[in-house]
Structure formats: C-alpha cells, structure tokens
Nucleic acid binder design. Structure first.
Lengths: 223, 223, 223, 223
DNA sequence: TTTTAACCGAGACGGTACGTCCCGTCTTGGC
DNA sequence: GCCAAGACGGGACGTACCGTCTCGGTTAAAA
C-alpha cells in the first residue's frame, strides 16, 4: 500500500559503461522483439521477455509503446517483415501470381500469427487499426498498385481500375483465405483466385466490358 | 477492471441446493458466457468470470472445454449468434445486399470482436480452425448457397458457379473489409462489392462471358 | 490494457505431487519469512523473495496477509521471537536485570530492526499497532508482571504497584534506549535503569516514600 | 495514489529562467520536502515527488543528501519542527506537564510519523542515528534540561539529578508511549507520568529518600 | 571580458518490487 | 461418481521509485 518504507536497496550495483539511449536503445528493443516473435510467436511474446532479451527494463518499453501490440507493429515495420520483391514478368497474370506467392510465403512465417494477433486487437481503437493497416498491411496494396500500373501501361488493364475495388480483390481474397483456412495456401488456390476471379475483373476485353465506374451496377433493377 | 460480476441468480449456493448437472449446467454456462461476451467482449472474457457468473467452478468448465476459445465457439453456436434470416426478394442483387447487410450488422455486435479473437487463436491447431469455420462462419456460406441456388433456378446464374470460388466472393470481401477496416461498414461499400465485383462475376450473360474458365469476363452492360 | 489475448501458456508444466495447503503451507511461508529476516533483515524483506523461498506464489501470501508488515508480525509470533526465559533468582533486582539483559539481547538480533520497522508502520492504523503490541511486544510486559508478582509475594513490592505505570518503567526505558541509541546496550545502562530508576519506584520502603496510590504525588508543593 | 503534485510555483521552467543555485535552491527543496511531509506523510514521501514539487531534478537532491531520510532530517531542522516554547510556570510540575503537552502535540502532527520513520531507518548506521538524535530529538532533552535547571535554582531538585538518567525519564516515557500506543496521548497519561513516576524521582525530599547519586539504590538490595 | 567549469533542469536509463489478475491443476467436502 | 468452491504454483501485467547517467543549457568565478 505505502510505496515502500525502505526501498530495499538494489541488491547490487551494475551500472554499465555507456548507457544506451534513444535510437540505439530503440533498435535494440525492436531487434529483441523480432527475435522473440521468431522464436515463440506473437501470442507468447511478453513485454517482460522482450525487455529481458534487450537487456533493458520494462519501463523503457512502456515509455515508447503503450502495449505489446504497438511494439510488434513497429518491430514488423523495422524488420522489413512486410517488404515485397516487386515482380516484373511482363504479364499481369504472372506478376500477380508471383505477388500472391510471396504474400502466401509471408503468411507461412511467424508473420502469419502476428497478422492474426494484431487484427484481433484492432477491436480496441480505430487509431491502432489504422496503424496496423499502414505498417503491416502496406506491402500488398502498394505492390498491387505497382503491378497494375505496369499492366495499364502495357494496355492490359484500363486505367480506371486502378482506384477501384477490383484492384485489390486478389490480395483481399488471399488474405481472407489465410485468415479462414490458415496456411499453407495451396498453389492451386492462388491460380484459382487469379484466373477465375481476379483477371476477369481487371483485364481489359476487346469490348472494354469489365470496366465500370464506381457503384456501377449490371442490373437495371437497381435504379 | 474490478471483477464486479453479479451472478445471474442473486444468491444461491449450489453446493447445498439442488445441484445442476449435465445439460442444465452446460446451458447455464453457455448462457453466462454469452452474457459476458455481450458485456465485456471477447478479449476480456475469462474462464474465471464465466464460472463465477454461472455460479459454478472453473473445473466444470475445463471438464467440458479445453479453453475459452472452444467455450466461446459453443456459446456462439448455442446463442444462435450466427443465424441468418434468409432473404428472398426475387433478385440475386437484392438478396445478396440484404445478406451482406445482415452480416455487416453482426460484425457491429459483440460478434465482431469474437470473430477477430477466434481467428487470432486459430493459429494453434487446424482442428480448432475448422471448428471456428463450421460453427461461427457457417451462416454466410450456407445462406450464400441458398441465395445462389434460387438465382440459378430463376436463370440469373449458371449452375456451375455454385461450387466455384466466385460464389463466396461477396462474403469473403465483406469479411476482409471488416477485419481490415473494422465496423461499421458503410452501405456504399456493400453495394460496391455487390455491383462492381460480385454480380459481374456470377450473373449469367447472354454471351456466357462470366463463365469460370480462365480469363473470361465480359461486361454486358456499360456497352 | 486488455488482460491478455492469449495468456502465453506457462512455459512449462511443473505441477508437483501433493500440493501444500492450509497450515502446512502457512508454516512453510512463516519459516521462509523468518529465514529472510535473519539473512537480509526487515527492510530488505520482500514478498517476492519470501514467496520464492517458500516455493509458493505471491498470491498465496496476499491471500493470508495484507502486506509484509502483517506477515512479519505473524512470523515473529510463530518463531517465538519474543519468547522470554522467565528468570527466578529470588530478588526483584536480579530478576529484573536478567530480564532486561534478555530483552537487550533480542534487540541485538534481527528482531531489533524488525521492531523498528514495525513500529514505523503502525502509523497506518491503530488496528495494526495493536497487533504489533500483542504479538511482538508481549514478552516484556508479561514477564515483567510475573517477576513483579513474585516480588509482591516476597514482600519486596506493594501490591498496588502491579497495575501502575511504575511497573513497566524498566522495560519502557530499555525500549526507549534501544530505539534512540541503538544496540548494543551497555550493561551499565541496564543496571543504571534498574538501580537508579526502577527499584526506587517499585520497592517498598519502610517510610513508604516512593509508594503512591493512584496519581499520588509525594510532593506537597504540587498542589 | 496518483502523483498529482501541484508544483508550488505554477509554471516556471528554471531551465531557461533565472536558475536557482546554492542556498536559494536548497531552501526551495527543503520547503518542498516539508510540504510533502505535511500532505502525504513520511512513508509516502519520495525523492521523485520532492524534486517535482521543488521544480528541480532528482540529481540536485542526491547531490546534497544521500537519501530521503537525511533530507527529511534537514527539512525538520529547517522547518523548526522540533522547536519548543520553553515553559516557565514557576514549578517543576507545571513546567514538565506543559512540556509534555507540547511534545505530545508534536507527535500528533506529521512529525509523529516522521519520528517513527526515521527511527526505523537508524538501523543502517550509527552516524545517521546520531544525526536523528541531534536534529530531531533535541527539543525534548534541551528543554528538559532548562526546566530542571530552573527547578534546581528554586531548590526543588538536587543538582546531581541534572546529569542522571532520572532527568529524562518523563520524556523517555512519553516517547515510548507514543511509539507503542500512538497518538493522541491522553492528558491523564501525561499527568500520570509526571506525578506517579517523574516527580518522585527528581524532586528533593526532606528525607532524601528518592534522591540518589548515580547507581544509588535506596534499598539495601538483595538483603 | 572572456573563458571555463560547475551546476542546474529535465528526464531517460537499468533495475526491483509492488499488488492484481488469470491461468490451468488439484483438493476438499457435500450431494 | 460429479458437483461447488476455491486454494494452489506460476507468470505477466502495468506502475512507481530507486539511484545513476546523459544532455543541453545557465551562470558565476577564473583567466
């Protein structure tokens, strides 16, 4: 109750030489967090262990991040966990398949459970949800956009697709597949998504048919 | 924060009263779990509180379920959390929109955070992942199938769509939208999913363009 | 914030055979507390270390005692820390000196710092102060009383002294000496207290000079 | 509990203003310490809060005092916490009672818990114990001595009492009473101490009965 | 007057203990 | 046998201080 009558003088004096501060310390913590994620996974990652591993104190963590979720988000960012090798095969189909394969491989790594865990905690506040999207989810959207842009340049895809919902259908379905059915994701699933769903939606047809302005509606009864 | 859990029945000591067993006890537990979910949400639900609320012991819970995730799955099932009013408007478009709106409403309820939480815990074992899909995710797929079947009967949709990946694209995208962007889901998003993505994929066209062989999608409208 | 999404399953399973409970556990804890007191002293005693030493959990301690002060009080009681060998030399003087020497020896042991520490914490509430008096301070008063009673029987002391403030002056002064000047207490101090202060106050004199009925005052000028 | 410490001077950043040094800073710290003592009491006083309140840094505190105990000792001294209005009523009895009443009143103030706390920490080293006696305990002894000297001049007390143990019995018993039984101290207790114990020990009698030179013993002991 | 060294304020740092909560297991009695 | 109650060993939580340290300053004394 009372803070402490006599604070039990720290058992021993251990002050090291140059104490780490600022960026040096921060990157040591992020490194420790990444190592923990790789070793024990997201659900078992604790602030305690990260602090221990980084040879610092919990207080140093809480000074920077409000909780483990935010720490992990930053660790992912710092670790380049969501970096993508932008494919450039010459056709939209092969680019997209290469992209999905990379994403699928990510899901198979510790990053998979991280993604699940973080999404679970976005319930808390929209602020954090946004953070997760920006720091963890970016690879997909950005890469998709680049791939599509090149397809537009090649004439494979109409420009207006770029900003439409159709653009991200492939990665959206892959993510959904992962979250529902887990990993590993069958390669057939990837080609199925691409060939049966994605390409028909985005590829230009001689009739220019697949384009649609937002909210477009094939059925007349929508009027 | 403080565990001020008011037990459902104010003061009754089942140690020395008519002791509940079997189904009676089980449903009391599930009821308590549902109440907890509604009140504090999934992340804050603990076995301890559920046991207290159900006026039973943790042992009774662990005898039946290996952990809170499994308990919650059963509670959802028992509570009809994932039941759907099958819409029947006469057109696929309206049926689908009605369906997505219902699902979207669910996501806005405690069920939303439950879904997130459960998906996060499917990392553990595929067995449990399957359970979640079957008990928690069923409403969507089943309803989608029924709606599509009726559309097939009406001639709006080709039969082979029924078993294809295209069939569930609408619900898949909705789920993805929820998991990434949270609730509430804008109604415009729903119509966008339906009109810009889903219908072009599943509706029959005179040219049969939307058939699921690779690459084929032609838009009839917009011509 | 949220308790825990996945409680990081305890690293390892370690459940022992027969788990200690009730009195067995309690005495193990008290024993551990006593050992700690002897080794590191009261100010450095922590609940954490006691729990560790007793091979139990902090929760088990907090279930029984609200804080370390109360735990230590009980440990003292259990360890017979304040037990006294009742002296019986045949004269009040020698009995009293023997008694003070014993008390002085106690103060020289870990018990000394315990007494200081506990007295410091009696600020909190009178309840606890009472506890300290009863469990930790009892030896003095009780022994004093016995010693005095025998002196009364021998005719050395008038009976009315027994309940008066004079009865405890010797131990009161010794305690005061310890608290102000610390230990060890010089043997000359003890004989000084006894011969110069205590005996003149309690021994019967033919003239009845030092005797007094309640509130009595030998000096007329006090009026 | 929450460290809601309002700094004395509302908002002034001494980093970039006229920076306090030496005595000015020191007295600001002591003032802050006294305020803290009055507000939260000794056990809850922390270096952190004092530094915050004084709008300075912990380092400035530790440069001057090795720990909070020493700081508090100085603060007491500076705050005149142990100053006494020397009574002069004309009789030893009334002087002594007035004195004890003042001391008792002190014990009822924050000074009470300070005394307890400091005494608890004298375990550490005799040096500090001496400091406490000199800075915090002085009022009693000094005043007692003055009062007694006047009584000697009036002929109420024999001169040799002045240096004997008997001289301080009244304050010693009062202190003991406070430490064991807490405050407030009943007025009857004070008169009891004075009339039943103290005066019989120090007042001169025509018979010289209660008087004694050091080590003296009115009883032909062990006879 | 200019330099320079001491000192100041702020607060980060590594660390320990706090007291609480929940985990999943186990024991105790009572029905 | 199963039930309720809850104790048990364990571990992580997030907070509060400890006493040290680093970092830019300010300021007074030395040059």
């Amino acid at each position: 109750m009372s803070p402490n009558v006599e604070p039990a003088t720290p058992a021993f004096d251990h002050r090291k030489g140059p104490r780490r501060r600022g960026e040096e310390l921060e990157s040591a913590i992020l490194r420790a967090a990444l190592d923990e994620l790789a070793e024990v996974g997201y659900p078992a990652l604790t602030m305690e262990r990260v602090a221990l591993r980084a040879r610092t104190s919990k207080a140093a963590l809480y000074r920077r991040w409000p909780g483990r979720a935010e720490l992990v988000v930053d660790a992912c960012k710092a670790g380049g966990v969501s970096e993508i090798d932008l494919p450039d095969t010459g056709t939209l189909r092969d680019d997209t398949i290469a992209l999905l394969r990379q994403l699928s491989a990510k899901m198979d790594s510790p990053f998979g459970s991280i993604l699940r865990g973080l999404l679970a905690e976005t319930t808390r506040d929209p602020e954090f949800a946004k953070l997760v999207r920006e720091r963890v989810q970016t690879p997909g959207p950005t890469a998709v956009h680049s791939v599509l842009e090149r397809a537009v340049e090649r004439g494979e895809v109409e420009p207006h697709i770029l900003g439409s919902r159709r653009a991200t259908v492939a990665t959206d379905l892959l993510r959904n597949q992962f979250l529902l059915y887990g990993n590993p994701i069958d390669d057939a699933t990837i080609t199925d998504i691409v060939d049966d769903v994605y390409l028909p939606l985005v590829l230009r047809t001689e009739r220019g048919a697949s384009g649609s302005d937002s909210g477009g509606n094939t059925e007349p009864d929508a009027s």
